[in-house]
Design a protein around this nucleic acid. Structure first.
Lengths: 157, 157
DNA sequence: CACCTTATCAAGAACAATTCCTATTTAAGT
DNA sequence: ACTTAAATAGGAATTGTTCTTGATAAGGTG
């Protein structure tokens, strides 16, 4: 239901469809997420949103993020013990977390593939969601490290 | 390296290989994990372990779990905002979390399959780990629900 | 428009899971 | 036995998040 809504309606309509109001705070939080596509944490959203709504509280940001996820407008992304992050990309995708710089990026699902193709899911189990996280090193960080080790090699000569 | 170790050595040797000692506390924690294959939380391990080592502290259990994971003897499993769980199954596998009863079970990787087959991972990214979680309803809970709705149907006749 | 009802919000307290700190105990290596 | 480093118990501290409360605002109704 919510998934359909996003293709057809504005976020306002989606929220109204859930019997809720699109308040200034909710809009500001949503707009920050749509602007920042780097999976910000609640606190990061909070500081950004303060630019628009100067005296919004952190609790309200959490509330807004919760209602937005409940309405299906954003997805919540968790990783190990770190703080939750929020993501307005509603297409099916996995996440990649760079261990050195901490950046998070989206990895799209390949066409006509399903996670069940890779893991043995007993068929009497009903899957409603899946969350897939990869960890490793992003190209930027790999490059940095290479430069460093080159420098070391030059020095040791 | 740690992965190899588990096939060749006892946990003691693996720990020694990391320059650490196999203490009573560590062994007790490890034994609980090997016994309880249902992905216990730190607190659950703590209460079980107290049977063997009556005055072990929760902090020590956390420490032991950390060293065991560092040595590659157990894996840490996180799910949404819930507490971390620990798993001595070192084979590659995903996890299934039942939304109704909370049970966690292992889903093995299919032979000759890799997660990269399903998600588009740019090749200049190096993957070191992945964590895959499915959510849904386990067969037991599905059966229970069916019985309930049958009962309802009978009543309404 | 006045009134009622409910949703929403800010602020701070409370909470759960985990980590940190410190003094004490234990074990290994001389 | 002596020295040194590792490991532990216990409690305090931290982090991220949720809960509570009273105030505010916004729709809907007569």
């Amino acid at each position: 239901m919510a998934t359909l809504a996003q293709h057809q309606h504005s976020p306002d309509d989606t929220i109204h469809g859930h019997g809720l109001r699109m308040t200034g705070q909710r809009r500001a939080v949503y707009d920050v997420l749509m602007g920042e596509r780097n999976h910000p944490t609640a606190v990061e959203v909070f500081t950004k949103v303060r630019g628009q709504v100067p005296n919004i509280s952190l609790a309200t940001v959490y509330n807004c993020l919760e209602t937005l996820t409940d309405c299906g407008l954003v997805k919540i992304v968790t990783h190990e013990r770190g703080p939750s992050r929020y993501c307005p990309n509603l297409e099916e995708h996995a996440h990649f977390f760079c261990d050195s710089c901490g950046e998070v990026s989206d990895l799209p699902l390949r066409a006509r593939k399903r996670p069940q193709d890779v893991w043995e899911v007993p068929e009497n189990i009903t899957i409603s969601h899946h969350q897939v996280a990869f960890r490793g090193e992003c190209p930027k960080c790999a490059k940095k490290k290479n430069l460093k080790s080159e420098a070391r090699n030059l020095k040791s000569k």
